[in-house]
């Protein structure tokens, strides 16, 4: 990393890795290594495979994690990107796409739909981004405390304006 931002560039210039900084053989992330094929007895029947591939494959995006680091996201939690920084260490293509999708405030369900990923996978990606401070999250208006008369009246007034 150079000490001063170069003229005309918003983001600091990031040099290529030097000799020795590349990962050694075997140190590549699991997703970049050759897949370990199971013995043929463990292969699924076609109809099972069709179902399972839709289930299993998305979780390879999360590195096999099935739980988010913070369990605060719901379907209608609104997430908003905080900064325009689009690159960074540890971010995958799906993270960047999620960041693009929440440039304007969007619900978790919307981001999942546009990413074409299950909600559970999207929540894991979003909690990664939240941990890095790249997004903010707004909780649903109705918490677990039950119905709120002021909120319901506001919804009623909003529907009347449609």
């Amino acid at each position: 990393m150079s000490e001063y931002p170069r003229y005309g560039q918003d983001e600091p210039y990031e040099p290529y890795p030097q000799y020795g900084q590349y990962p050694q053989y075997g140190q590549y992330p699991q997703s970049e290594q050759y897949p370990q094929y199971p013995p043929y007895q463990q292969y699924l029947r076609y109809e099972q495979y069709e179902q399972a591939s839709r289930l299993v494959r998305p979780f390879t995006i999360t590195g096999g994690r099935t739980e988010p680091s913070r369990n605060i996201f719901t379907l209608i939690t609104i997430v908003t990107a905080t900064a325009s920084v689009r690159a960074g260490p540890g971010l995958q293509r799906e993270h960047l796409r999620a960041l693009d999708l929440c440039a304007a405030p969007a619900a978790v369900a919307e981001i999942a739909a546009h990413l074409d990923l299950p909600v559970a996978v999207t929540k894991i990606l979003l909690s990664d981004l939240l941990d890095q401070g790249r997004i903010t999250a707004t909780a649903p208006a109705q918490g677990s405390g039950g119905p709120d008369i002021a909120l319901l009246e506001k919804v009623r007034d909003g529907l009347a304006r449609l």
Binding site: I76, I78, P105, T136, A137, T138, A141
Partner: peptide, 14 residues
């Protein structure tokens, strides 16, 4: 809520 933002809307669902 961590990282809460007052500018962003909140949501309800039916």
């Amino acid at each position: 809520m961590p990282g809460s933002d007052t500018d962003a809307p909140s949501a309800v669902k039916i």
